[in-house]
Design a binder for these strands. Sequence first.
DNA 1: CTTTTCAGTAAACATGTGTTCACCGTTTAG
DNA 2: CTAAACGGTGAACACATGTTTACTGAAAAG
Lengths: 227, 227
Amino acid sequence: MSKPSPRGASIDDGATEFATRDERKQRTRASLLDAALKLMAEGRSFTSLGLREITREAGVVPTSFYRHFRDMDELGLALVDEGGATLRQLLREARKDVAPVNDIIRRSVRSYLQFLKARQMHFMFIAGERSGGSPVIRSAIRNQVNLFVLEMSQDLRRLNFLPNLSTATLQLLCGLVVNTMLNAASDILDMPQDEPALEQALVDNFVRQLRMIFLGAMNWKEPAPKA
Amino acid sequence: MSKPSPRGASIDDGATEFATRDERKQRTRASLLDAALKLMAEGRSFTSLGLREITREAGVVPTSFYRHFRDMDELGLALVDEGGATLRQLLREARKDVAPVNDIIRRSVRSYLQFLKARQMHFMFIAGERSGGSPVIRSAIRNQVNLFVLEMSQDLRRLNFLPNLSTATLQLLCGLVVNTMLNAASDILDMPQDEPALEQALVDNFVRQLRMIFLGAMNWKEPAPKA
DNA sequence: CTTTTCAGTAAACATGTGTTCACCGTTTAG
DNA sequence: CTAAACGGTGAACACATGTTTACTGAAAAG
């Protein structure tokens, strides 16, 4: 009659039995974070999540929450950190596919989509709470995204991509690309996932948008610095 | 002499006194909508708003809510309608400033900013709930935004702006512009409003992003239709 | 082996929630 | 002028919420 919790990872993995105390703690911490993400994936905003709701979903008693986070904001910030880590990982992944200068965009989009599917919830969280919800986590997300933009522009510079553009302009370009990326993310993740035709349409549109942006960047003329 | 009101010190507005019943109803309906917007402006997402909270802010008793909306979703959809109307009004406004083909972008941005300030909350709502929160209002917003993109592209066509671009490409361009607009909106509205220097930086960045996009559009080559 | 530490538990609390119901007083329609 | 329609009211309901307090039992430290 054991009704296991509906979470994906089953509770006793076998490994659970022989885990050190600290490992166990990190484990329930992670399941709290996962619970929050899962609830958001079902169409709720972060600010609408309740503490009890999360602990219920995570399979612990409400009071356990306080062993890990002072309040909901702290949990939200932890989620932002995870999201930031995901973004950085995406960037690290992208650094490998630098070889063919030919059809970069289409290639990059392909690996981005792959990454997007693998971390659906993180992207949903970032894209969703970037402009809505609690000011504190909103600004934390903005920081992470700005950092991402910065790193990306540095990568482009290092690759000698559009070498005649100033650093500021490269950052402008990357900001535009990242906005487009995140918009596309929430568009794509919102789709019924059994409609490959519609998804393909969205992806094609995404690719064309990027092409247009890069076309603009390639034809950009740096203004002479004002006297 | 006015006859003494039985409820004692009631503030008559003059206007309130001589309103027809239906006008009064629309008035409290509007104050419910405004209350919701105001609460969101204080840094909450729509899904986190409570029915009682809204009626409290609006100055009516909770049960009155049901005289206007079946539930919170219905109120949310009403807000989306208002937001859509705002967008359409922005477009109508923009149709007037078509004369100088010279520095269109800077001019358009200026009037956009003016509009943005005047309807802060609507834009905050649209930009904030576009990717987060309840699926039903999210998709409603998406509809309104798509409609806006469509109308805008038709306007550009009518103005013979970039006449060598196909309709699909014009829509692509407008989608990109609208995304950039909405992102800029939430960036700008988030700022402490007594920092004109930072705001100017954001606006400049916004203008440059648009320039880059339009540059891309101007250099766009329509692909030959595939055999 | 003993003692301390500490993640998770159980019960209780004050307060907030959405929704229902019968009711009132004015506006509207006949 | 009378009767109906109707926007707004107040009390009540069953239940959910965040947080506190004291407790448990196993892992870690001595």
